[in-house]
Simulated scan of single mutants.
Amino acid sequence: MAEARSEKLVAELKARAEALGFDAFGITTADARPDLPEKLRVALTEGWHAGMEWMEETEDRRSDPLALWAEARSIILLGVNYGPETDPMALLADRHVGIISAYARNRDYHDIIKGRLKELAGLLARRAGADVKVFVDTAPLMEKPLAEAAGLGWQGKHSVLVSREFGSWLFLGAILTTADLPPDAPHPESCGSCTRCLDVCPTNAFPAPFRLDARKCLAYYSVEHKGPIPREFRAPMANRIYGCDDCLAVCPWNKFASVSREAKLRSRPELERPALAELVGLDDAGFRALFAGSPVKRIGHARFLRNVLIGIGNSGDPALLPAVEARLDHGDPLIRGAAVWALRRLDPHRAEAMRLDRLSREGDSSVRAEWDGVV
């Protein structure tokens, strides 16, 4: 009798999840991945988390769902398909366009998913008389391996969850509950001998299959890193101004995503092919207006312009020089420094002619180093 009630409840939850716009649904137990503490310890010991200190600070809770909530018995993992309608890598050929990662071209997915999770969790609480907690990836919960345990897909060699139905394009959210729900079978790893995601990485950020070193990852530097982009990663950034989709975009399983259920999340047209010439002219208010509700807004105006100026430096277009020079006097040294690098790339003779005068007036050591070309 209890088993029948559980199956009926799960069927109701799945139907409601689909109605809410979730494309994938699976259940695992809270203790399904006892291997996670060791996996996380290795990554932190190796320094693969780069400057993301919060991963170390939350290690104990991050490595074990029961450390987050000891009473949890089951975890519902849910996915939303955000597969782009066009190949993100095609934009690399147009150096006048700034590439924004596919996940960031709409409303912030944290806001989208959390509201849906709360509604579904409320239904579970009412039906099962159980306690519930919802998590998106801002919380210290390792959704990807848990989603693998719940049968949504498997962690590919690029470390991102891969789905047979949606390729590498799933937003993930989780509901922890005290209810005992029947778990789904874990999904076996199905990458085979394919290494496309590893081979395409412009900075060799994968020390081995299934392992990502953020210290070499363009997505990390353009989104999480707060200082100047290290010199060795600037040219490889090309015109990527927020995130990097290369390893996701080449996954062969994406071909099935195009014939799966229609994606619920659509890109905002103005964020699909934004011109670098327009983006570099944004002041703080303009930046906030354009990216209202977008995850891009979280990095702030200075880091965003840093990325745009790197893109301009890689554009090879001298017509953008006036916009670059206009940023040489910006109040933020992060922007000034990126502008100097862009100037040196587009017109090294002009940069050298300006160098001594600018050095005499520049008080920031990082910007001075840019003028000297030694950063």
Results as ranks from 00 to 15, higher is better:
residue 192 G to H: 06
residue 319 A to T: 13
residue 276 L to V: 01
residue 45 T to K: 12
residue 6 S to V: 11
residue 201 C to E: 10
residue 93 A to Q: 08
residue 54 W to E: 11
residue 268 R to M: 05
residue 91 L to G: 07
residue 109 Y to Q: 10
residue 362 E to K: 14
residue 162 V to C: 03
residue 151 G to N: 00
residue 295 P to C: 11
residue 23 D to K: 09
residue 40 L to E: 03
residue 175 I to E: 02
residue 15 A to H: 02
residue 181 L to K: 11
residue 94 D to Y: 04
residue 302 A to I: 06
residue 19 A to L: 05
residue 176 L to T: 03
residue 256 F to M: 11
residue 209 P to F: 12
residue 344 R to A: 14
residue 211 R to G: 10
residue 145 P to D: 04
residue 273 R to V: 07
residue 70 A to M: 08
residue 86 T to D: 12
residue 220 Y to E: 13
residue 297 K to D: 08
residue 308 V to C: 02
residue 261 R to S: 13
residue 7 E to A: 09
residue 302 A to F: 05
residue 248 L to N: 12
residue 82 Y to W: 11
residue 66 L to Q: 15
residue 45 T to Y: 08
residue 15 A to D: 03
residue 224 E to R: 02
residue 144 K to V: 04
residue 139 A to E: 01
residue 215 R to A: 12
residue 151 G to V: 01
residue 209 P to K: 04
residue 57 E to S: 14
residue 353 A to S: 15
residue 287 F to G: 00
residue 284 D to R: 15
residue 130 A to C: 10
residue 93 A to P: 10
residue 173 G to H: 01
residue 207 P to N: 07
residue 238 A to M: 13
residue 135 F to E: 02
residue 355 R to N: 13
residue 259 V to M: 03
residue 161 L to C: 00
residue 31 D to K: 10
residue 85 E to S: 14
residue 370 E to C: 11
residue 120 L to N: 05
residue 334 L to S: 00
residue 358 R to I: 04
residue 250 V to A: 05
residue 102 A to L: 08
residue 325 E to I: 12
residue 20 L to K: 09
residue 117 L to T: 01
residue 228 P to T: 05
residue 285 A to H: 06
residue 47 G to R: 06
residue 161 L to N: 06
residue 132 V to W: 07
residue 175 I to Q: 03
residue 231 R to I: 10
residue 200 V to T: 09
residue 171 F to I: 07
residue 222 S to D: 09
residue 37 P to D: 04
residue 245 D to W: 13
residue 233 F to Y: 11
residue 100 I to M: 08
residue 106 N to P: 00
residue 44 L to Y: 03
residue 121 A to Y: 02
residue 233 F to A: 11
residue 240 R to D: 14
residue 8 K to N: 14
residue 206 F to W: 12
residue 334 L to R: 04
residue 319 A to Y: 07
residue 170 L to Y: 09
residue 366 S to Q: 14
residue 71 E to V: 04
residue 92 L to A: 05
residue 41 R to S: 09
residue 50 A to L: 09
residue 301 H to G: 00
residue 10 V to K: 05
residue 92 L to K: 05
residue 343 L to W: 09
residue 252 P to I: 00
residue 119 E to R: 15
residue 242 Y to A: 04
residue 127 R to Y: 05
residue 325 E to A: 10
residue 64 D to H: 07
residue 247 C to F: 11
residue 355 R to S: 14
residue 141 L to K: 06
residue 353 A to C: 13
residue 155 Q to S: 13
residue 288 R to P: 00
residue 199 D to P: 08
residue 176 L to R: 12
residue 346 L to E: 01
residue 282 L to K: 06
residue 109 Y to P: 00
residue 112 I to E: 14
residue 229 I to M: 14
residue 94 D to H: 06
residue 126 R to P: 13
residue 136 V to G: 00
residue 4 A to R: 15
residue 221 Y to V: 05
residue 356 L to Y: 13
residue 142 M to E: 03
residue 365 S to Q: 13
residue 170 L to C: 02
residue 93 A to K: 12
residue 118 K to N: 05
residue 259 V to P: 01
residue 286 G to K: 04
residue 56 E to M: 15
residue 295 P to W: 13
residue 143 E to G: 00
residue 89 M to E: 15
residue 114 K to G: 09
residue 76 I to K: 01
residue 168 S to F: 02
residue 285 A to P: 00
residue 330 H to S: 11
residue 297 K to G: 01
residue 333 P to H: 09
residue 263 A to S: 10
residue 128 A to W: 07
residue 64 D to T: 03
residue 194 C to K: 14
residue 290 L to R: 15
residue 3 E to L: 14
residue 129 G to E: 02
residue 126 R to L: 15
residue 48 W to P: 10
residue 161 L to F: 01
